[in-house]
Amino acid sequence: MATITTTRDGVPRAASQPTRGRPDRGFGTIGGYIGRTVLALFFAFPIIFMFASSLKPDNQIFADLSSLRAFLPVGDISMDNYKAVFDTVPAWRFLANSIGVSLLTVVLGVLVNSLAAFALSRMRWRGRGFVLAAIIATLVVPFETFALPLLWWVNKLPWLVMQNGQPMWTLGWLDSYQVQIIPFIANAFSIYLYYSYFSTIPKELDEAARIDGASWFRIYRSIIMPLAGPATATVAILTFLPAWNQFLWPLMAVQSENLRPVMVGVQYFFQLDVAWGPMMAYASLITIPVLALFLSFQRAFIGSIASSGVKG
């Protein structure tokens, strides 16, 4: 039986697998750092511009566009745009909605997709390859092509509610939280990512556990998932981002303002006389949770991409 070790990023690796040498020190490293710094600044400029502009009045934003002042919090700066945000949009409500919807989608997505991938990767059953191919095939279908059929479908689905203390069926999920969550739990990309990752975990672990009398669910819960931390982090981020960025679907399926997510709120600022400053302030506010999440899971996220070779 091969010896299995687990690397710092949680990826199981055979002990005999070669490791990479240390990178060269010296000029090449300095050049690398300079290059990376330039690239980092290049990619950070839009975010720096957004935060800087969120402190400026509209006219100054445009007056500063032709110089580096656009990226600096200088001139007539104030928090007025942030005050205007809360006068224009129920921002806290939208943030709470998006956090709730995104987190539930992530938690349920991790559970459902990892279970599906476990069944496809670890269990032997007839038609497994066909089911996997069918799931992967759905990746090529863009959401926009089935948004309307999905809308029609969810409008026909029943839901149980309590009315005057009595359970009642209602028809249609429109204008609800569940319509923003349930259709996005099962995700072909997440299943494929888990499937790829699970395939790197030696089958000998399952066999040993089965001999010891563990059920399939016990193997999933106590062996496979604890080893799949980086994959879970990647799935969590790749599920969270689209859930957080949902725009078209809530626009179609949600009518009540108190159920809307943050992205719909961006359009509140696109009046004929666009409020650029408040819009930048709002964009800054709704970017903070995403940045925080990415920074928290950055190591695991990169580790999973490096080990699975999958890019989001």
Partner: peptide, 21 residues
């Protein structure tokens, strides 16, 4: 009353018409 942002209002109406809502 339900208020929608102007930029996406027509899409919301067409979606509602599709769902007969």
């Amino acid at each position: 009353l339900q208020a929608f942002p102007q930029e996406s209002y027509n899409d919301a109406v067409v979606a509602a018409a599709t769902a007969k809502k």
